[in-house]
Design a protein around this nucleic acid. Structure first.
Lengths: 185, 185
DNA sequence: ACCCTGTCTTGACGGTGTCAAGATCTGCGC
DNA sequence: GCGCAGATCTTGACACCGTCAAGACAGGGT
């Protein structure tokens, strides 16, 4: 039911157009009509697939959480320590900036969307994988690693760090990790 | 030059109205016309004081950075360790949510505004006060503390933490601090 | 008295999200 | 083949929005 539209795959094309638009000028300046024009369809076409603007951004966020979960799981498989997973988190934020710019902004999304909850849950589970139980309880070490990586990524992308950090964010994040005890267990 | 308008102090009233509006529905949904109506003036009055929408949000952000700097300086004076300053940072984000929701979103602000830069610099300096030199170089411990507190606050406000954390954020943040080595120097 | 500057209003313009209605295509039973 | 039902997309309209230009208005210095 999801593919072979008149357009080919308009849903996919609209998500890609939205990602490109967010990459250029952020989620606040995103216009459904501009996205539609970018995809070569009429101004009301997006509403049919996503309901409203928040619906489109929700689809972008869900895609982002799925890719983030993939990234984190791969980091666990490859290395298996918090520091490497944190570095993968930071790299994801840099490499998928438009997705990241939308994923943690609930006021722009439909928080009850099933696909968003599923994908977000995958990410949370992947983050807690190194700390015993599932992602539902409060695990200080996991929350610490998540907060550290997330805060570093947000502050980096917002431009709050000195040039030395911007030049090599991964090395800086490694140094930040050493400044805490997170790499040591 | 800044007080005794026809209105009394319209600039202040508009900032307060903007903060209230952001508190209700976030910065993305903020409307200059709604802010003007809230303050009881015509729809174009805000433009005269702030230029445009980003100008109004810039004033809100600058006020936020000033208050944050005050908060952090008080925390240094009272206690003098990174953990307490981090806790003060988290409390600030909770207590001044509308300000915080705007302060780290450069795409909504005029990044070159003089007052914003001054206030933001005060906050950065206050954050680095416990780590030797000024706020311009890369100090891993300071960046770690900032990232941890900022990430914790963002994830908390975005609703990404379990209920146990939401119920008592400060206790949770203390536990997160213990999970790292940040409280130990 | 008079103008000048700062403050605010009025009116207009193009752009935006959303809704209702209609057009067009696709697959499927017959 | 054929026609119909439903999914897909377009068209047109509406209220709202940010921004700009022009004017109204007050107060102070000359």
């Amino acid at each position: 039911m999801n593919d072979s539209y008149h357009h080919g795959d308009l849903r996919r094309a609209l998500i890609d157009a939205a990602v490109a638009a967010v990459a250029e000028s952020g989620p606040a300046a995103l216009s459904l009509r501009a996205v539609a024009k970018r995809a070569g369809v009429s101004h009301a076409a997006p509403a049919h697939h996503f309901g409203d603007k928040a619906g489109l951004l929700t689809a972008v966020a869900a895609e982002g959480f799925d890719r983030l979960a993939d990234t984190l799981e791969a980091a666990w498989d490859d290395t298996g320590d918090f520091a490497a997973v944190g570095a993968a988190y930071v790299r994801f934020a840099i490499d998928h900036r438009p997705h990241f710019a939308v994923m943690f902004r609930p006021e722009l999304l439909h928080g009850d969307d099933a696909d968003l909850r599923r994908a977000s849950g995958r990410s949370t589970d992947a983050l807690h994988r190194g700390s015993g139980g599932g992602g539902d309880g409060f695990n200080p070490a996991a929350v610490a690693a998540w907060s550290l990586a997330h805060g570093f990524a947000e502050l980096l992308l917002a431009g709050n760090f000195p040039q030395e950090v911007k030049d090599d964010p991964e090395a800086a994040f490694r140094a930040v990790g050493y400044a805490t005890g997170l790499g040591l267990d």
